[in-house]
Structure formats: C-alpha cells, structure tokens
Computed example of a mutant assay.
Amino acid sequence: MPAADGSLGTWDARAIVSNMLPLLVVLCTIVLWAGITLEEAEALLDEFGVLAVMVPTMVGAGGNLGTILSSRLTTRLHLGTTNLDLHDRVLWANVAAVLALAATVFTTLAVGAWIIGRLIGAPLPLSALLTISLVSGMSVAVIAVVFSFATTYGSYRLGIDPDDTTIPIVTNVVDVFGMLIFIGVSTLVLS
C-alpha cells in the first residue's frame, strides 16, 4: 500500500528489482505466445506479403498508445491530480486523444501498406487494408486503454510505483493481443 502521506516511497533499486524480475519473466513468456502466433500465420503472411509489412507497426503502435496513456495517468497520479473518477474530464480527454491518435496512425498504416503493396507488386485493395488496419488497430487501442487503467491503478493500490510496471505490462499484453487480433482480422477479411 502507499505510504501514509500517499506517496509510493523513495526510489529503491532492490524494491524495483524484486517487484519487476518475476513480472518480467512472466511477460517474456507471454510475448513468446505472440511469436508463436506469428509463426503459425506464416502461410497468410507469405500469401499476402504486404501484411508482413504491417505487423511491426501494428504491434509497435498499439504498445506506444498504451504507454502514452499509462505515462499520463501515472504522472497525474503522482501529482495527486487524479483518481478513478468517471466524471474526470481530463481523464476522458486523454482517452479520447489516444483513440483519435490510433485512428490516425492506423489509417496512415493502411494507406502506407497499400502504396508499398503496389510498389512491390503485392497489392491488396485499399478497402481491405483499411478494414484490417482500423478494426485491428482500434481494438488494440481499446485494449491498451483498459490495461493502462488497470495496471496504473492496480500497481498504485498494491503500493508499487506504476512507473515501474505500466509500460512493460501494457506493451507486452498489447503485443500479444495485437498479433492475435491482427492475424484474426486479416484472416476474416481475406478469406
């Protein structure tokens, strides 16, 4: 639990390592699942090479969106300017900003993949790429928002500094869900 004054205490390397080492081991195992999913989707990625171009951006952007929100939540928590109040306008403005950024990034990803597909001779219709990118990307963005909130407030309630936990948890979880969703949506759209 947080200290009596509401702070999470001072920086202590031993506490950080003892909190993070088991967490990082679990997260490494979880990320292996994303790798296995990618390996199982090799046939799909071979058939539609432009999808392979989208994978790193899809996964990376989802994690980045989650870390943006996690960092903002953690900062507000440390400053004492937030609590989990559903009437907090700034909280919802941050969520809206992340979702708007996701829509922009994943639309750009689809258009970029369409252009690359035409250049390398592996074109897919822009409508298919937009569907894959936006459905996958916005789903991942929502998952990133949920895990950002859960990790930030869960860590704080457990007395662990959210700065130590939010980014590794959110990025790893979003990587796994990002791969699963992207491959699933791609399979549905292109079948």
Rank of each mutant, 00 (worst) to 15 (best):
M1T: 02
P2L: 15
A4F: 15
G6I: 07
D12Y: 04
D12C: 06
D12H: 13
R14S: 08
A15M: 04
V17A: 14
V17C: 04
N19P: 03
N19L: 01
N19S: 14
L21W: 10
L27G: 01
T29E: 04
T29C: 10
I30Q: 10
I30Y: 08
V31S: 12
G35Y: 01
G35T: 00
G35H: 03
L38Q: 12
E39T: 08
E40V: 02
L44K: 07
D46Q: 11
D46E: 13
E47Q: 12
E47H: 09
F48V: 14
G49D: 00
A52L: 05
A52I: 01
T57K: 01
M58T: 12
M58N: 06
V59T: 01
V59Q: 01
V59S: 02
G60L: 10
G60C: 08
A61D: 05
A61G: 03
G63M: 07
G63Q: 08
N64Y: 00
G66Y: 04
R72P: 00
T74R: 03
T75Y: 00
R76D: 06
G80N: 03
T82I: 15
T82H: 02
T82F: 05
L84F: 15
D85S: 03
L86T: 07
L86E: 09
H87Y: 13
D88E: 12
R89N: 09
V90I: 07
L91H: 07
A93F: 09
A93L: 11
N94E: 09
N94V: 08
A97G: 09
A97D: 08
A100V: 13
A102I: 12
A103L: 11
T104H: 06
T104A: 12
V105Y: 10
V105I: 15
V105A: 11
T107F: 14
T108K: 05
L109H: 09
V111W: 14
I115S: 03
I115F: 15
I115N: 04
G121S: 13
P123L: 14
P123D: 10
P123W: 11
L124A: 09
P125V: 05
L126F: 12
S127D: 08
A128F: 14
A128V: 12
L129S: 06
T131V: 15
V135Y: 06
S136L: 10
G137C: 10
M138R: 04
M138N: 03
V140K: 02
V140A: 10
V142M: 12
V142T: 11
I143F: 13
I143Y: 08
V145L: 14
V146I: 13
V146F: 14
F147Y: 15
F149H: 14
F149R: 11
A150P: 01
A150F: 10
T151L: 00
T151F: 01
T152R: 02
Y156L: 12
R157K: 15
L158F: 04
L158Y: 00
G159P: 09
D161Y: 09
I167T: 15
T171Y: 09
V174C: 11
F177P: 01
M179E: 02
L180A: 12
F182Y: 15
F182G: 04
I183Q: 07
I183M: 05
V185W: 06
V189L: 02
